[in-house]
Write a protein that binds this DNA or RNA. Structure first.
Lengths: 154, 154
DNA sequence: TATTGTTATACTCTATAACTATA
DNA sequence: TATAGTTATAGAGTATAACAATA
């Protein structure tokens, strides 16, 4: 029973938005400082790359500089990240998490993950393994296509 | 090698946004009337349920009535859907696709699917089957959680 | 009085264009 | 002159609160 790529594509096209809405809702529900998905991803990237520049964040997110600047502005305004001029090249900016940013990130990550774990608990062991494998298959092809797009559009 | 639900959740949390960005980018690139993801989903639902009400669309999308009203407004403004007062219950509205809406929907669907098929072509037969199965597993649990949320928040 | 939908308002996400500061 | 970032402006997505029309 071989699967047509068209069927598979259609399936992904329908299921991915369902998953995303779930993630968004859960993050927003975490009031007392809910994070949007882009905000969450920004904090995550900065945590993994402390001292990173705005351009690097923009490339990672797949956004333009102004959009990223605004996003970062908001997070700076809410004291979640520090934005300093780079001492080496003063045109650049060095971004890092504040204590508060780190703890909010951890809370959001834990909360969202916990809720998703609850949903996943309905799955059998086999199904879960299957889903895990599928995600590992999909990640590289979508991660790659992402970079190609950013380059194309410059 | 059993998979922990926590790992699986983390994986989904990282991969789903990658997929979504890809879908969004592709739809937007289809300028000459690009559709956003919510717009696309709205047209899709109306095609499948001609004469549907605003409330039903809102429930399907997981949005509030005002958000949905605005979304529909925009699509009406661009002549993609018809909005008529229901003859039975005049508080209600009956939504259907215009010719133009149908052809734009088909074009968007074809384009986005085609591009995703290209990405999926890198997969082996086994991987594709696996991904298909995973989507079929995930769909009901996220579709259900969606409905539960909407009910809770009313 | 309850239900269906719209309007008003506000915030976030995203883009392009124009600008500033530094290299 | 080229690069890193910001500001100005604008459109779309989303929400809550207040309202209008119909049942």
């Amino acid at each position: 029973m071989s699967v047509l790529p068209e069927e598979c594509a259609r399936e992904i096209l329908e299921v991915a938005p369902l998953i995303m809405r779930n993630i968004r809702e859960e993050m927003r529900r975490h009031r007392t400082e809910g994070l949007s998905v882009p905000q969450f991803r920004t904090l995550l990237f900065i945590q993994r790359h402390p001292g990173t520049s705005l351009s690097d964040v923009a490339e990672h997110l797949g956004l333009r500089l102004p959009s990223t600047s605004k996003l970062v502005d908001l997070l700076v305004g809410r004291s979640m990240i520090n934005r300093l001029s780079s001492s080496g090249d003063r045109r650049k900016v060095e971004l890092s998490l504040t204590e508060r940013g780190l703890s909010l990130l951890d809370a959001a990550r834990a909360g969202t993950q916990k809720q998703m774990v609850e949903l996943l608990s309905e799955l059998t062991v086999d199904e879960m393994e299957n889903v895990m494998k599928a995600m590992q298959t999909l990640r590289p092809i979508f991660a790659l296509s992402e970079r190609a797009e950013v380059e194309l559009s410059r």
